[in-house]
Design a protein around this nucleic acid. Sequence first.
DNA 1: CAGTATCCTTCCAGATACTG
DNA 2: CAGTATCTGGAAGGATACTG
Lengths: 217, 217
Amino acid sequence: MPVRSYRQHCPLAHALDLLGERWTLLVLRELLHGPRRYSELLEGLPSIGTNLLAARLRLLVSESLIERVELTPGIDAYSLTANGRALEDALVALARFGARRMGTRRGGSSIQLSSILLALKAARAPDASQDLDEEYQFEIDGAPLHARIRGGVLHVDSGAAAFPVLVLRTDKETFVSLMSGELSPSAAAASPAVDLAGAPATLERCARVLGWSSGAS
Amino acid sequence: MPVRSYRQHCPLAHALDLLGERWTLLVLRELLHGPRRYSELLEGLPSIGTNLLAARLRLLVSESLIERVELTPGIDAYSLTANGRALEDALVALARFGARRMGTRRGGSSIQLSSILLALKAARAPDASQDLDEEYQFEIDGAPLHARIRGGVLHVDSGAAAFPVLVLRTDKETFVSLMSGELSPSAAAASPAVDLAGAPATLERCARVLGWSSGAS
DNA sequence: CAGTATCCTTCCAGATACTG
DNA sequence: CAGTATCTGGAAGGATACTG
């Protein structure tokens, strides 16, 4: 237990005793979509400071929310345990709250791929998408991810889709401005920074399903 | 924006910029179940220190997650705004995580009524309760609260139930040991610290529905 | 690459005194 | 009652130099 505990018999206080320190939840965000090496974590968490990252990893390992794994012989990394994966709902719920008040991008802020994935997971499909069953694939700075809508439920993960109705290749900055509504789907389809396979109308539908602000409520 | 920001364009980082400081989420927990006066908040957050509570309240008001309201003429209090209420899902998700690793009560830890309410909201009804439709009422140190199960969905709130199949009066400590499984429903029914209206079998069912550990998985 | 070690700054806990 | 103001020790955080 951390030295600084709330000392309340409360599930929330207990969770915060564990996770409430600075950076902890962002480290878990980085690991939410697969194992990461120490140096990759440093990249994804600009300005964390090596001592803090090491301290957080030590804590999370000791609480068995994460574990060291051998990625390939000689290369090891950190990976979520089943206990750690149980936090996904909480991270998504917090992200959903944060997304509502985030607005368009602020100058000087960096963009992580893990943030984009989390933002996609935090989206809620509108009621109107109840009867859709299709997949969208994105490639952001070369990294593939996909979203599937089926029965009104959205499922997002990294990796390629099996039968996407749309493939959109672009960079992080452009994708973020698309999500925020700053860049409309039609403008994106025409943009030289975007490589789109699929009809522009499909991209419009995708934007509505994922709640990209230009179309939705 | 706080001085210490993560400066990432990420919905989670954004939420934590706002809520990540110590005490902030616990203040919101206290307000989740109704308006509270400054002195009531101090009671519910032992050891917070008047300056920190004032600082957190100032921040939350300025971000319009809470607002001052006049409870009765001359008496004012703090209350969640609609924006603040949007955090309930996140608090419940974190509490659900915390509950899994909380175990039985630690010596020296205090118990707040708001924590009990949150813990009840974090419960998930088992599949077996799909066909139940009933209400349970609790009175903990005199404060009424209730849980309703219907269609497999659990709804918990403060206040009295309309047609409870069970009324259980006790103190916070006993109720907590009941929730943790330390005290079995049958032992509780016989305990002098508990005043139960309703069949012991009903209390057993209630304990299963609310996931009190002795019966459930 | 994967961390420790170090130094310095900022924040927090706890106490207490004061104001309208 | 509902705060604000001030103080002090200690813990956490930030930056960077260093090591196996």
